[in-house]
């Protein structure tokens, strides 16, 4: 783990020192050692703040999308995990990011920790999370401490990950980790939801979306949601989504996000992690990817040469009436 961290620092320092990038985006420690946050490094002597550990969940590709770079034509170095690299490839496929202006450091990933799952094990605030092999130790502000198996605390989509190594990178922070031989995607916990009756699904969704506050965190944290100020969710004409915040409009709001990233979203989970009220958005996005895979054998963002599913077609697409 720490050798990847050292290599990230080394690569970042070199890129900054040689003036290949204006700034480098990696992860650094947050308010306390229980979390990692995005770090923006502007000079080679600041690279020591960069870290890599299983808390480095942010998909930094978000900071490459339209309106995010500061200045707009900045040359940016960025760290990507396997899932992050797929969102980057999706952006590159549609030329939404200029390949010439980015320098990508790929980080092989062993899965990231779902901090909220750890948090819920305590009433008090978690202030430290440390790792030793496959054991995760979490400590609270009052000094309570519990140990967990790492596999129990990683995200669902990490446990079923088929792309632990970046599919696109200029340099790698380590040798690739072993990849599963069977590349058939796995969809984790959505089967449980699929098995419910229509009325039960409706009730579950309604309960979840009732608490949505329409803060746009899901949309802005999403690396492949690029409309920004032109989002139809903010638009009054057409009023596809009403401004009233209620269950139905909230789900409609999320549908806009979901259908607009269909074919680009590899369900990296950035939206889910950003949601302040913990709406299980991954359910929707993973289901969408599952159906896309069943329909077309398509997985978003795995190859630069491929076109996104909805920007192309085949005369003999195997569905619909002919």
């Amino acid at each position: 783990m720490s050798d990847r961290q050292a290599k990230i620092r080394e690569l970042a320092a070199a890129a900054l020192a040689e003036d290949r990038v204006d700034y480098f985006i990696g992860w650094k420690q947050g308010i306390n050692p229980s979390e990692a946050i995005p770090a923006f490094v502007r000079s080679a002597d600041e690279v020591d703040q960069l870290i890599w550990n299983p808390l480095s969940h942010h998909n930094l590709t978000t900071f490459l999308k339209r309106k995010m770079p500061d200045p707009p034509n900045a040359r940016i170095g960025v760290c990507v995990k396997g899932c992050d690299s797929r969102t980057l490839v999706a952006l590159l496929q549609e030329e939404l990011v200029d390949k010439e202006r980015i320098y990508v450091v790929g980080v092989p990933c062993d899965g990231v920790i779902d901090r909220r799952r750890v948090e819920k094990e305590f009433a008090d605030e978690v202030v430290d999370i440390s790792f030793s092999g496959d054991v995760v130790t979490a400590t609270t502000r009052c000094g309570d401490s519990k140990e967990f198996a790492k596999g129990d605390m990683t995200f669902d989509h990490c446990n079923t990950c088929r792309y632990p190594n970046p599919v696109y990178a200029d340099d790698m922070a380590a040798d690739p980790v072993p990849e599963p031989e069977d590349r058939t995607p796995m969809w984790g916990s959505i089967e449980e939801f699929e098995a419910l009756s229509p009325a039960e699904k409706d009730a579950k969704l309604a309960d979840a979306f009732e608490t949505c506050i329409r803060c746009f965190a899901c949309i802005h944290a999403c690396p492949v949601c690029v409309c920004w100020d032109q989002c139809v969710n903010r638009c009054r004409r057409p009023a596809l989504v009403g401004q009233r915040v209620d269950t139905k409009e909230n789900l409609m709001f999320q549908m806009v996000h979901m259908f607009h990233v269909a074919g680009r979203c590899p369900s990296c989970g950035a939206c889910d992690r950003a949601c302040p009220v913990e709406i299980p958005l991954y359910l929707l996005h993973r289901k969408m990817n599952k159906e896309l895979y069943d329909m077309l054998g398509f997985e978003p963002g795995v190859s630069l040469e491929e076109k996104p599913a909805f920007q192309t077609f085949k005369l003999d697409d195997p569905f619909g009436e002919h």
Binding site: F193, E194, P198, A199, E200, K201, D202, A203, L205, L251, M255, F259, A262, L284, K287, M288, E291, L292, D294, M295, L296, A309, F310, F313, K314, L315, D317, F319, G320
Partner: peptide, 22 residues
Amino acid sequence: EGNYYARRKFELLDRMLPFLGV
């Protein structure tokens, strides 16, 4: 070719709607 593009979208919609309780 409008309906060829559309067909993919409708198929996805057709598969998603039951998931949304319809």
